[in-house]
Design a binder for these strands. Structure first.
Lengths: 120, 120
DNA sequence: CGGTATCCGGTCCGATACTG
DNA sequence: CAGTATCGGACCGGATACCG
């Protein structure tokens, strides 16, 4: 639930709150690519994330109804994460933004190196 | 430039970094709606923002080539902000996400009130 | 394997006061 | 009008150690 606001000025604000945070885009991406992943697999997919942050972000996404968490009571324990229908619709809505990032990421990084003042 | 990362795992990550933060979605939305806004106008548009945060976020967006800042050396001083071409393309890419937020914001908020464990 | 608990530093962000 | 400077609290996020 991220900052857990109770109201939003616009839908975009709400969406960024849901998908914001350092790791959530990567988690969503990984689940979108893989369909279903175990905790340990996600930990490897999202390289650099700590256990604490991964579980925290997953719990927030779960609370928001974006991911589904399925627990298998076995030994060794197994937990599988997947996108809910809402999560999949979010991912679809996210596609153009991801595309935009892919297209202009290099330009953004260049802008940061050579600050400009003129119009684009 | 937000956290000012130097590399990204995927475009979505980059895009969220650019548009993340507490106020940027609202600023982009306001500029998108209005076309061109003065500092004081933006301050009113984005209700609740402090001068410090507004100027800080605007500077980051400017550094990323998302907004254009035009200074008119008059008395009293006048500064106008507008979206660059890159900023407009970002806004376009953001539209589906904003739509998603509008559509599901109420559901998200409900999810947060009544935590569920089943699939959506 | 899949978590939880705790500590702790950095950053975000708001409030306030001041300047050209 | 359009900023800048400084302070301080809250929160984000990493490291480590421990539990079922």
């Amino acid at each position: 639930m991220a900052k857990g606001k109770v109201s939003y000025s616009c839908g975009l604000d709400a969406a960024v709150d849901v998908v914001g945070g350092k790791w959530k885009p990567l988690i969503l991406w990984a689940l979108h690519e893989a369909g279903t992943r175990r905790f340990g697999e996600l930990r490897r997919d999202v390289s650099g994330v700590s256990e604490k942050m991964l579980i925290q972000q997953l719990r927030e996404l779960e609370a928001d109804g974006i991911v589904h968490r399925e627990v298998y009571r076995e030994v060794p324990p197994r937990v599988e994460y997947s996108l809910t229908g809402l999560g999949q619709s979010l991912n679809t809505a996210l596609l153009p933004l991801g595309q935009w990032g892919d297209d202009f990421m290099s330009q953004i990084l260049r802008n940061r190196e050579h600050p400009r003042t003129g119009p684009a």
